[in-house]
Amino acid sequence: MGASSISSDLIRGNIDTIILRILCEGDNYGYEIIKSISKYSQGQYELKEPSLYTSLKRLESQGYITSYWGDESQGGRRKYYTVTPEGTTSYHHSVEAWKTAKRLIDQLIDQLIESGEGLN
């Protein structure tokens, strides 16, 4: 299994949080969200369109984002997404949960390394 496979597996459960983070910066549409994720990951992670739109639908059904159609003056008509106050709250809770999980995982891995277990 390559590094990109591992990254995808680890990241998959946090896609909603990542999308909410991007939308906290301002309204955006699908293609630009994908580009932002690629940019912020320095090209190490590429979110696929089906995953993006599944997440956007889920976030919208939960009331964490809303959508609207932009005007057509800048090319094709685009659907923009904006984070709601509930989405901002959910984002902050998810970040805190991630930090707690990261600390626990780091602790478990460090303890195993220090004990010499799991190195076989």
Rank of each mutant, 00 (worst) to 15 (best):
I113H: 11
I113A: 11
C24T: 09
E117N: 06
R103H: 08
G116C: 00
Q74C: 07
L23W: 01
T54S: 13
T84G: 03
S67Y: 05
I65S: 03
K102G: 00
N120A: 09
L10D: 01
T84S: 01
I15S: 01
T84L: 01
S67D: 07
W98N: 04
A97P: 00
T17P: 02
Y91R: 04
T17K: 10
Q42C: 11
Y68T: 12
Y81F: 13
L104C: 03
R103S: 11
I109V: 15
S55L: 02
Y53L: 12
I33L: 15
E60C: 04
L56K: 03
L119Y: 08
P85W: 03
G76C: 10
G63D: 05
G63L: 10
Y29G: 07
D110M: 10
G75T: 08
Q62W: 07
Y29V: 07
S67L: 11
S5I: 04
L47V: 08
G30M: 12
L56N: 02
Q107G: 04
A3D: 05
I65P: 01
I6R: 14
G30P: 10
T82L: 03
P85M: 03
E32G: 03
T54Y: 14
T88C: 04
I37Y: 15
E86T: 05
I15V: 14
S55E: 00
M1I: 12
I37H: 14
R21G: 02
L59W: 02
Y91E: 01
T88R: 05
V95G: 05
S51F: 13
E96N: 11
R12A: 14
E86S: 14
S7L: 15
I15T: 07
L112F: 05
I37M: 15
L10Q: 08
Q44I: 05
H92E: 09
I22D: 03
K99M: 09
I34G: 01
E114R: 06
Q62P: 01
E114I: 03
E117P: 00
P50S: 12
S36C: 02
I33Q: 06
I34N: 06
I109H: 10
G43V: 06
